[in-house]
Design a protein around this nucleic acid. Structure first.
Lengths: 143, 143
DNA sequence: AAAGATTGAAGGTTCAATCTTA
DNA sequence: TAAGATTGAACCTTCAATCTTT
């Protein structure tokens, strides 16, 4: 059948999905920001620099690990250099990204906040069974 | 206990949630854009103008129905006026927003694409039971 | 003054076009 | 040339500051 409208049930699902997306991420990122001044994107970049490269990583490797497109990372690094969180070091035709002291300091503040926020706003809010159900549903939906 | 790291299970949940958020919305908005040229935000504004006000709504009412802050709507309307999708009409100290022919045309194309996209990328991918589980989990998480 | 709205800056994201260096 | 990266434009979002009209 050719329909132009969602059923009430479909509408409910769609609304719930939208609300979830907006609310949960906003809360988690807000907690990280309060604790460290870092945005979610900044935290992601800095953690990978520290975890995967001990504070130093090629832009190429950083791009892969974030799953980002080159332009996205480039713009992000430009902003982060402006805030003295990282520094770019040209190397041949590529670039190495290095954490600066400011970035390191902020990351130290952000790490525990990140863990606590995910537990508070996500993990602890559902039972183990509900979490399992979410996981299997998300797996099918993201395929 | 004071921990600085998520457990493997927590990490899995967090990754799944992030993947879900990025993938599902990107797919749905991409389908709408292909069919009509409208972004998700534009589609939201135009649908409400049509559904709630028959093509014409006060900016105030539009803001409420979108659940947006004033600046967000103002910037959005500025862009949409630039694309000739809507027009602002000053009225006392407030503003009435009117759909223009371009907006109406695009909306006609977008509506069926929106419905199909939600079914294709969301509703049909999970069983009824899984959808119920998602709904109850989202309800708890968004509170 | 207060309500309704706009503006500018800063951060984020995507695309296409461009630069740079091996 | 081609890989690695940058740039500019357009869109999106938030915050604080600023009109504007009653």
């Amino acid at each position: 059948v050719k329909t132009n409208r969602l059923t009430p049930r479909e509408t409910t699902i769609w609304q719930a999905v939208k609300a979830f997306k907006e609310v949960v991420f906003a809360r988690i990122e807000s907690d990280i920001q309060q604790a460290s001044g870092l945005s979610g994107a900044e935290f992601g970049v800095l953690s990978r620099l520290q975890d995967l490269g001990n504070g130093k990583l090629s832009q190429q490797a950083l791009k892969e690990s974030m799953g980002w497109h080159k332009a996205r990372l480039s713009h992000q690094l430009t902003r982060m250099e402006g805030r003295d969180l990282v520094q770019r070091v040209p190397l041949g035709r590529s670039v190495v990204v290095v954490i600066l002291p400011e970035g390191d300091k902020a990351l130290t503040l952000a790490r525990p906040a990140h863990v606590q926020a995910i537990r508070k706003h996500l993990v602890r809010k559902v039972t183990r069974e509900e979490a399992d159900a979410l996981l299997s549903a998300f797996e099918k939906l993201s395929r």
